[in-house]
Structures are given as C-alpha cells and as structure tokens.
Amino acid sequence: MKMKLESFWHDHWRGAIVALAILAVAVCTISLAIGFYSLSFSDVFTYVFSPITGNTDYAYLTPTVVHNIRLPRILSAMMIGAALSVSGCAYQGMFRNPLVSPDVLGVSSAAGAGAATAITLGWSSLGVQAAAFVSGTVMVFLAVAIARRSHHNQTLALVLTGIMIGSLCNAVTTWLKYIADPNESLAEITFWLMGSLIKVDMYAVKLAIWPMLIGFILIWLMRYRLNILVLDDEEAISMGVNIRRDRTLVIIAATLLSAAAVCLGGLIGWVGLMIPHICRAIVGADYRKLIPVSALLGGIFLVLVDDLARSMMIMEIPIGILTSLVGAPFFIMLILKKRKI
C-alpha cells in the first residue's frame, strides 16, 4: 500500500498539488461557518457567492462575522501553517537533520523576547508584532554573522550560535516575566507566548503577508537548489555550487517566514516539525514536490486545528496548546510504528 501511494504521487504529483489547493480553499470556506456565533453553512455560502449570484438572502450579521472575525483568522492560520511548514522543510534539509524545526536558529525565542519587551514597555499590539518580527530576524542574522567567522564546520557553528542566542533571549523573556505586573503585562506576555490567533485582524494579516510572500517566493525559486544544500558541503562545492551564498539566501527566506508567522500568531509549535515529516513520507524527499505540498498541507492542518480551538469548548483554547496536544502523540506514534524517525 505504501509503495502504491508513493508511486501514485510520483506520477501524479502536479495534479495532486492542484487537488490540495482546491481542498485548502474548501476547508477555508467551510471554516467560515465554524465558531462561537452560529452561522449556518447556507448563510456563509450565500454570502460568499452573492457577488456572482446577486442573492443577498443571508443572516444579518454574516458580513461582519465573516469579514472582521473569521476571515482574518482563517487566512492567518493558513499563512502561519504554510510558512512554518515551509521554513521547517528548508531548515531540516539545510541542517541535514529531520528533527530540526523552524526555530532552530532561535527565531521564536528572539521574537518572544522582542514581544515581551514591547508588552512591558506598554506598546500597542501593532508595536508588539513589529518588535517580535524585528528581534526575530535580527537575532537570526546575528547568529549567521557570528557563525560565518568559524573556519570549521559552519553548520555546527550556526546551530550552536542559534542555541546560544535563543537561550539568551529566553533569559530576557523570563526576567521580564519575573518583573512584570502580574495583573496586566504578565498575563499578556504569557498569552502571547502560548500562541493564539484570538487577536488577529485584517490589518495584522496585511502586514505579515509581505515578509511571508518574499520568503515563499525565494524558497519557491530555490526549491531545487534545496536538494543540493542537503549534501555535504564539500560534495556540493565539488559540483560547482556556491553553497555559502545559497545557504544564506535560504536562511533569509526561512527566517522571514518563521518570524512573520511568530509575530502573527505567537509561538505555535510542532507544525514546522511535523508537517515536513508527513509530507516527506507521502511525496518523497525532492524539494520540488515537498515545498508546495507542505505549504498546502501545513495551511490546511492549522486551519483545521484552529477550527477545533474555536469550537471544542465554550472558551477558546489557544492554538499553540492544541498543536502540541496533537503533535506530541503523533511523534510517539511515529516512533512506535516505524521504529525510526
């Protein structure tokens, strides 16, 4: 069965990507009808298609709920899921390690520290987002700049520097939590670090989409070159590849993606680790297939998890908690079933 599935993907992967894209649109549309305020599917569909059909026979509040509350959430879940999965794919290949996640270079910790600082200083939510994004990207580039000075194993130097900078940033965050006002900023910092889409609005989505687009386009263009970056440095060099330049470009792209994802939704774990694994098991290791498939599957996954987060209980569950609840058992299952990772 596994063999069959694999060869099916091998022969029909372009069609499968189109099918996944259609599925993504369908999942998003259906998700518009899920949430606290009850809207029926027919209300949603009537509203969505009303520009074409001219039929305006939907519940009075439908446009407000769809536009102001649900659409930004669903869009951001799609974007975050895709961004985290794609940057996870890229980092796993570049570090030749399937256990690497998008925050391997400390981008989450750095963004968290930036956000915590902005919250402590009492900045607006836009300011918090900007601080998270800037500190996430700046710290990763700092790690890259430091690692480039190493004459030995660049990859190892990069991972170690990333871990150091990450722990430095975690220390800052912990200290800020320690001195924070327990009634206001502490709650807000904790909430931000949990990862949640409760506060996203269209404005935030419009801001985050730019760095994400740049990251997606760059990685899409380099999707074949990512395969070469999986090779040992020396093998790649002997093939005439400028591995330093290419690796730097991929790090820039992956960092833009993960930093934008983190500043939109806080720390949402597991997606960037889990989705690339699943996709690799389905379509194989070639990044030409892996990148589009994990972008789509990652987006669909996070939209579905967010649907759960919104509808499982009366009070909303932060999505970061849910992804971990789903993610950890998934990995245990993977180990038990395949006896390897």
Binding site: R96, M222, R223, V230, A236, L249, R288
Partner: peptide, 25 residues
C-alpha cells in the same frame, strides 16, 4: 543521505552545475 531520495533524484543532482540556483532541472 539523511533523507530518502530516489536514485534518479540523486543522479540528477549532478546536473546542479548546468542551471542556476533559481531554476529547476
């Protein structure tokens, strides 16, 4: 190899020199 590339994909990598970093075989 860390990841399970097919034989054809591995051999294809030898062509990396023949197209740019932003292109595909």
């Amino acid at each position: 190899p860390v990841f399970a590339y097919s034989v054809l994909e591995v051999v294809l990598m030898g062509r990396a020199n023949h197209f740019s970093a932003f292109s595909v075989p």
